[in-house]
Each structure stands twice: as C-alpha cells, then as structure tokens.
Amino acid sequence: MDTPLSSNTKAILLLTAPLLLGKGAEGPKLLSLGEYNRLAHFLREQNAEPADLLSPNAHELVNAGGAIVEPGRLESLLERGFLLSQVVEHWQSRAIWVASRADNSYPRRLKSRLREYAPAILYGAGASTLLDGGGLGVVGSRDADDGLIQFTRSVGALAASASQSIVSGGGERHRSCGDGRRPGSRRYCLWRAF
C-alpha cells in the first residue's frame, strides 16, 4: 500500500505520535487520547478538521483552542513536520502503513465497535481491508519458548485452512512466524496502537 498520508493523518501524527528517529532531543509533550479527543471536538465545533492546523493561517485556530492545549505546545508539536516525513519514510520502506480515524482506510469494524475509544492512529502491515472481515488475534509473551512458537504455528495453519485471517501483534518472534510466505496464508500485523 503506497497511498500518501492524508493531511488529517499527518496532523494527528504530529499531535499524538512520538515519532522516534533515534535518541534525539526530548520533544514537546504529546497530546493524550483525552486531550486529543477534546481538541477534535473543539475543531468540529469550529467547522474545522485536524488538517486545518497545517494551513498558512492555522495561527488563529491554534490560539482559539488555547483553553484546551497551550498554543506554544501545539505549535511545537506541529513544527515536527520534517521529523514526521523521516519516520513515515522509515515505515513505508518496510511496508508499514498508518491510518488515522479520519481516513477512509481506517478499519470500519474498529471504529464502529470502539467509537471514541478507537485508537486515533493505527499502524499495520499487510492488506488493511482484511481487517473489516474480522480475524483471530494471537497474543503472547515477548519471550515465547519453542513450544509456544510451535503452537502459534499450528494456530496459523488452522486459520489459513479455514480461510480466516490472523491479526498479530508486534512481538518479535510471533511476527516472524506470521510472516512466512506460505501459499494461501493471509497475514498481517497490527502494531502499537495509540
């Protein structure tokens, strides 16, 4: 999947994602899910959307929302544009996609079930449309032993034979088990959700 990020996704990432590039300088404090939800609510009231925070006259909007988030903090977060591009490039070069709640590509199933608790940003790899068909989640410890890995493999094989998708987390070994290029297997991973 190689569609460019929507402006809304870019704005939400700037506000809420840590955007880690290395051991860099400590950035401004990110918005929590609660803060972000309040800001999103405020923007809707103003007949605006997150993308408007990136326009040339965003200044007024930022100041108007001062009661929710201090304007200086908001501006510092929005200044992270170049950083965002670097992190996104890193994801894309590894076939990882990002979708925000404002995007059409955001799995409808998650939005309808979780409503405002749906993560503002979702990261994943694989075909995101499969998520709307549901699937089986495999959760496990980071330090899975060989027996568990074997078990996970058999679950994967069972799901594949039943034409069911596996939704896996980002654990190092689980992920690689799910990544095997087995014919007929439908696989994708979901990573850390905000």
Binding site: L19, L21, G22, K23, G24, A25, G27, E79, R80, G81, F82, L83, Q86, H90
Partner: peptide, 16 residues
C-alpha cells in the same frame, strides 16, 4: 546519520 545526527534537529526544521 538519522539516529545520531538528524534526530537532534528533525523536530524543529523550518525549511527544506
């Protein structure tokens, strides 16, 4: 370069 150098300033770049 990205991890050790760029990480220090990427969050504040004003012009590319």
């Amino acid at each position: 370069f990205r991890e050790h150098v760029l990480a220090h300033l990427a969050g504040r770049v004003s012009l590319l």
